[in-house]
């Protein structure tokens, strides 16, 4: 399998603090990779670097062997990397369906699908895919009025609307009840089967052990462990980080 994303020796400092320190990893196509670590481990910064919000001080990022380091976020998105945010950021005053139309008018959609149909129908299709009822009144409410769990799904729908090849999910499960988490997991697996690659950032290894093919553990900006969920859970260094010590 070819590598869809290569992160090479990425380092980012904010003043004196090193947020991400010499991190390298590769992601295969159709893989679900989880990046876990305690608070302040640099997980979100790493996502921000991949998606272009933050420029790394050192290191390179390759998407399908194309150097994307330092490209503006919208260009990276147009190449096929979309993301969700840790705190859902809907466009509050717009109705939920209109939230999904925004990515649908991006040049990527016109280029990759040559599709000029009714954006509204397409937006409702996508929202249905992430678990909204087709005739639900939530679709027509301003997105700011939606409950938290629904906002996560709107975030996911917005990311999917771009027809991405790689999705960065920033703590998708945080703030969700376990039934809600369990209802999203099949959806993520379905996306993977459809050919998408997923990078998930989560707090705990346990949350992602069910679906992740590979887990990368960050601590204080450094990669301390990488492997399938079981081995990572047993790793002594990881246990030390999570159970205190060091």
């Amino acid at each position: 399998m070819s590598k869809i994303l290569r992160v090479e020796n990425v380092t980012k400092r904010f003043g004196g603090i090193i947020a991400v320190k010499n991190v390298s990893f590769e992601v295969d196509e159709k893989e679900i990779v989880a990046i876990v670590g305690p608070n302040g481990a640099g997980k979100t910064t790493l996502l921000n670097i991949i998606n272009g919000f933050v420029k790394p001080d050192e290191g390179r990022i390759y998407f399908r062997d194309r150097d994307i380091t330092g490209l503006p976020p919208y260009k990276i998105a147009q190449l096929g990397i979309s993301r969700t945010f840790q705190t859902p950021r809907p466009i509050h005053r717009l109705r939920t369906v209109f939230n999904i139309i925004v990515p649908l008018v991006s040049p990527r959609i016109k280029r990759t699908t040559g599709w000029f149909g009714d954006e509204l129908v397409r937006a409702i299709d996508i929202l249905e895919e992430v678990g909204f009822e087709r005739d639900s009144e939530y679709l027509w409410k301003p997105a700011g009025l939606l409950p938290h769990g629904y906002l996560r799904r709107v975030e996911l729908a917005r990311a999917l609307a771009l027809r991405p090849e790689l999705i960065l999910l920033d703590e998708l499960f945080s703030g969700l009840s376990s039934p809600e988490v369990r209802s999203i997991i099949p959806l993520l697996l379905k996306l993977r089967d459809r050919g998408l690659t997923l990078i998930m950032v989560e707090h705990r290894v346990k949350d992602v052990s069910e679906i992740a093919d590979r887990v990368i553990v960050l601590h204080k900006g450094e990669k301390i462990e990488e492997g399938d969920p079981e081995t990572v859970l047993k790793s002594e260094r990881v246990l030390r980080v999570y159970l205190g010590g060091r």
Binding site: P72, P73, A77, R83, V105, S106
Partner: peptide, 10 residues
């Protein structure tokens, strides 16, 4: 919400 627009490829 400008960041959200940027990650939407616009």
């Amino acid at each position: 919400n400008e960041p959200s627009v940027k990650v939407s490829g616009i």
